[in-house]
Computed example of a mutant assay.
Amino acid sequence: MPGKIKSSVVAALCCAVLGAGAAGCGGDALENWDPLAAAPLSGVEKIQVAGRSVNVSCSGDPDKGGPVVVLMHGGGDGLDKLVALQKTLSERNRVCSYDRLGAGASDPPDGPQSFAGTGKILTGVLDRVAGDAPVVLAGHSLGGLIAARYAPDHRDRVKGLVLMDATPPTMAADIAKAIPESATGPAAELRAQNLAMFRGENPEKLVMADGPVRSAGDIPVEVIQHGKPYLAALPEYGPRLERAWTAGQRAWLALSGDARLSTAEDSGHHIYVDQPGVVVQAVERVTEQAARQA
């Protein structure tokens, strides 16, 4: 398509890099806590976290025991995109998902969000849906980035990670390097759009800071990257973006001494849609291993 990039490519890249942390909502504990609401959640409900309404969905036997799997959607998506994956996983596990502030049916944020703020919201959600049970976080794209940033500071609770084409830890710098400031046309537009998103110009108002990968200990971690090089569709600079993305997936292996990288060969960015079986198997492996180590 002369003079422009296919909209699907732009959308995919925007979702891919829309990536990290959220909140700006103060408070470490749940507000307006209702003791009667402590019964296990079933289906879709809204809970109060730090004074904000957060949309949550849970399924699977709450009495099954073992780790609770928490699915984390990508940028521009919501928990509704994860319904099929959640249904499949809940046949063997307790599984929950939630809309972050500014996404889906949850409240919008009060202002700019950060990793620390997003962590507070996630902690409030985990308090409600998992209690004292160990947790496996399975995040796609932005959700994977948030999960990977959260886990090192919450080793007492997060006992496993599955990252589905997670936004790399240095994606802002990667984009700025792969598409130089001197670029023109569609590439320049894409560069400007994505760097703006990292500054917080996105629906979740997430201000995304690059940073090193910190260790979460020796928890089981599975990193799954896409196999179809959709980023290469960007004229001239696409191959650089693909190489940067691949390097970013390898970088996540530093999260744990027990991390592995695999490729969903027939998948684009939305691996849980294109090859759901790959994701289901990875989540079940990590959950079973986390249960044995608990």
Rank of each mutant, 00 (worst) to 15 (best):
P2Y: 15
S7L: 14
A12D: 14
C14D: 13
A16D: 09
G24K: 14
G24H: 14
C25M: 08
G27K: 07
D34H: 05
L36K: 14
G43N: 01
V44K: 05
Q48A: 10
V56M: 03
C58H: 03
S59H: 05
D63A: 15
G66N: 05
H73P: 02
D77E: 10
D80C: 04
A84T: 11
T88D: 01
L89P: 00
G104N: 01
G104R: 01
A105L: 15
P108I: 10
G111K: 06
S114W: 11
F115E: 12
G117E: 04
G119N: 04
G119Y: 02
R128K: 15
R128V: 08
D132G: 12
L137K: 06
G143S: 07
M164I: 15
D174A: 15
T184P: 02
G185P: 11
P186E: 05
P186I: 07
R191E: 03
A192D: 13
N202F: 10
N202Y: 11
K205T: 08
K205Y: 07
P212D: 08
V213M: 04
D218H: 01
L231Q: 12
L231S: 14
L234C: 12
P235Q: 05
E236F: 15
Y237T: 08
Y237R: 08
P239I: 12
E242I: 06
T246Q: 12
T246F: 07
R250Y: 05
W252Q: 00
L253F: 00
A254W: 02
H269N: 09
I271Q: 03
P276N: 03
V283N: 00
E284Q: 08
T287Q: 00
Q293C: 10
